[in-house]
């Protein structure tokens, strides 16, 4: 059972709005609570909608190769 306080913290968590200490505390609870994990997963539908409802601005085509090259020398195949 998730109480109202945890629902509030979860809501702020999915928006990235918890401060560092609150976030650390919340993540600790999240790690141990399957109900809270499911609650977060369902809330992500709402946050995805919020993020995607803004005007679309595509990055310049040149940025793609720049970013791909930036990981070229890192681990990988």
């Amino acid at each position: 059972m998730i109480n109202q306080y945890l629902e509030e913290q979860a809501s702020l968590h999915v928006l990235g709005a918890l401060n560092e200490m609150e976030s650390r505390d919340f993540k600790g609870k999240l790690h141990e609570d399957a109900d809270l994990q499911e609650f977060i997963a369902r809330l992500s539908t709402a946050t995805e909608a919020i993020a995607g409802a803004i005007c679309r601005v595509d990055p310049p085509p040149s940025l793609r190769s720049k970013i791909l090259v930036s990981v070229e020398n890192r681990k990988g195949n």
Binding site: V14, G16, L30, E48
Partner: peptide, 16 residues
């Protein structure tokens, strides 16, 4: 993936 979609994760990383 149990905590939400990849799109939400990518968006929040960018936002932060």
């Amino acid at each position: 993936p149990h905590l939400g979609k990849a799109s939400s994760w990518a968006a929040i990383l960018t936002r932060n």
